[in-house]
């Protein structure tokens, strides 16, 4: 679905990604782990074209998107949920979703499906998004990314600062998306959240991928956790 080969990204004078190699298989949920500043968000933003790779290649669905404009990458079927939610505060919930649907009103059946795990969005349908709570904003950010079927979802720390009940809604949403064979790249610190969801895991350090393997392997291997992350994943929450 998506492959990154030797991707380097510079932000100003800083050399953030230093040769990232990563393959996201179709229909799988890949979790990207790593300490703060390892380059996880930069990886997502580079895939999205918000920062262009200075070297290396990104191939999505058979097409080279290394220097493709962000808008074209989005139109090609990649949706991005940034860490800070990225909703449009002045627009209503409805308007945010219409904007994401791009071709007019979202499909009603799909909306009902989204309301199934994010009921608050239905309740606050005509309310300005800026007035929602943090959890509701996160629901809206994810709903916006999935309001139309997308080939690949890039999600940056969706559970950050959320209440457990809302995290459970997110788990349901991601499970259903997986069942629909949506490819997902998830940056997350909450290991309990991703343990049951992830098919594979990639660990980043200093702008490089230092480990790629099945989630089950890392989840069960304490030595590997210690080696890769410097701590047991059970405490990495």
């Amino acid at each position: 679905m998506l492959s990154l080969t030797g991707v380097h990204t510079h932000i100003g004078q800083y050399h953030i990604l230093q040769g990232v190699d990563l393959v996201l298989p179709h229909g799988e949920l890949t979790v990207l782990l790593g300490r703060n500043g390892a380059g996880k968000t930069t990886t997502l933003r580079t895939i999205m074209g918000l920062w262009h790779a200075s070297r290396g290649a990104l191939v999505f669905d058979g097409s080279d998107i290394t220097q493709t404009a962000t808008a074209d990458i989005a139109c090609a079927g990649i949706a991005y949920v940034p860490e800070n939610m990225g909703i449009f505060s002045d627009l209503t919930v409805h308007e945010n979703l219409v904007l994401a649907a791009r071709d007019g009103e979202p499909d009603k059946a799909r909306l009902e499906w989204i309301f199934g795990f994010f009921p608050a969005l239905k309740k606050f349908w005509n309310q300005a998004a800026g007035t929602l709570s943090g959890g509701q904003k996160q629901m809206l950010a994810i709903a916006r990314a999935i309001v139309e079927p997308r080939k690949l979802l890039l999600v940056d720390e969706p559970t950050k600062g959320l209440a457990p009940a809302i995290i459970q809604s997110l788990i349901t949403a991601f499970r259903e998306l997986k069942a629909m064979e949506t490819t997902i790249l998830l940056v997350e610190q909450n290991f309990n959240f991703v343990r049951s969801l992830g098919d594979s895991v990639a660990v980043m350090d200093d702008g490089r991928i230092v480990h790629v393997g099945p989630m089950a392997e890392l989840s069960e291997n304490l030595d590997l956790q210690q080696k890769l992350l410097g701590l047991s994943l059970d405490t990495h929450q």
């Binding site: 999205m48 404009a69 962000t70 940034p82 994401a100």
Partner: peptide, 12 residues
């Protein structure tokens, strides 16, 4: 509100 976000939704 945020041109990067609008770009990321597919709007030039």
């Amino acid at each position: 509100e945020n041109d990067f976000r609008a770009e990321a939704l597919g709007y030039r």
